[in-house]
């Protein structure tokens, strides 16, 4: 029995870890730039594909299998730089426009990225073969848990703490929070908003690409993988509260773990349960569990 509880909980937390990274990217961008970035799912897919290529290159060059996580995470972070291009090249032109334009623009990015991915990596699913199994399993209360899943959970937790520290303990974090609270005031006090926007958007992008890169050994990259995740990321954001990091963390845990419990207990409820919670939150607490807090 305990073994099943561990299996169900840990698979839910594993799912939540990835969901958190993507949702956090969504939140940080919305918190500061007030843009609902539909493309966060595409960044996730991009990270996954780049991760596959990086690991392929790494093993091809004879790198030890046990260290494959390093090039994987580095590639995931590095490709986050595409955020600067999207922000400076596209988004900055629509900051003063209606939200509909912003949504449309990020949706256009979704479509373009899907095509770009298809042209670069082809249509067949890509995967990192058996690297997922490199680290084996550890027994936890009778359940055999893949070590790689624990690494992803650990990495996601570390990133959550790092973001928390960044936002609350550093000058950069204070500037971000100030900009999120009151853009005009921050600008009047001498904050270079262009730099803040570029940095924040890149941070949001890198969270998504890193999430994609980290998940890829356990799954396979498919060009539409981002679309699937973004629906769940929306649920996370609604439950946690738009713009809130703490909301992304708690929301991801709720969605991941409840989904996992539903699949084990009453599989018909798999997705429905998530939407029921979303509806309940919208009715009872429309701003979400942590809504209203800045970034």
């Amino acid at each position: 029995m305990t073994q099943h509880v561990v299996n169900v909980l840990l698979s839910g937390i594993f799912h939540a870890s990835i969901l958190f990274l993507v949702a956090a990217g969504l939140q940080v961008v919305f918190g500061v730039q007030k843009i609902f970035n539909l493309a966060c799912g595409s960044f996730y897919a991009l990270g996954a594909y780049v991760g596959v290529s990086a690991v392929g290159w790494y093993t091809g060059a004879g790198g030890p299998a046990a260290l494959f996580v390093l090039p994987l995470a580095l590639a995931g972070l590095a490709v986050g730089a595409v955020g600067v291009v999207v922000e400076r090249g596209l988004l900055r032109f629509v900051y003063d426009r209606d939200e509909t334009f912003q949504l449309l623009l990020t949706f256009a990015v979704v479509l373009m990225m899907e095509d770009a991915i298809r042209m670069t990596w082809g249509t067949s699913p890509r995967s990192t073969a058996g690297l997922y199994l490199t680290y084996g399993q550890v027994p936890i209360l009778g359940a055999a848990v893949p070590v790689y899943n624990l690494i992803v959970i650990g990495a996601s937790l570390a990133i959550a703490l790092l973001i928390g520290w960044l936002l609350t303990r550093t000058a950069f974090g204070r500037i971000i929070r100030a900009s999120a609270d009151n853009r005009e005031m921050a600008e009047a006090l001498g904050v270079d908003m262009r730099r803040v926007y570029a940095t924040v958007f890149t941070l949001g992008t890198a969270l998504g690409t890193l999430g994609g890169a980290l998940v890829i050994p356990a799954t396979a990259a498919m060009s539409e993988m981002g679309i699937e995740l973004i629906v769940e990321a929306f649920a996370v954001v609604v439950i946690g509260g738009l713009g809130s990091m703490r909301g992304a963390f708690v929301g991801a845990l709720i969605v991941g773990v409840l989904r996992s419990i539903a699949i084990s207990v009453y599989p018909e409820l798999e997705m429905l349960l998530i939407y029921l919670i979303v509806i309940a939150v919208l009715v009872l607490r429309p701003r979400g569990l942590f809504g209203g807090a800045a970034a």
Partner: peptide, 9 residues
């Protein structure tokens, strides 16, 4: 793209 929860079930 993630069946870990299904596999637990």
């Amino acid at each position: 793209t993630d069946f870990t929860s299904h596999i637990a079930a």
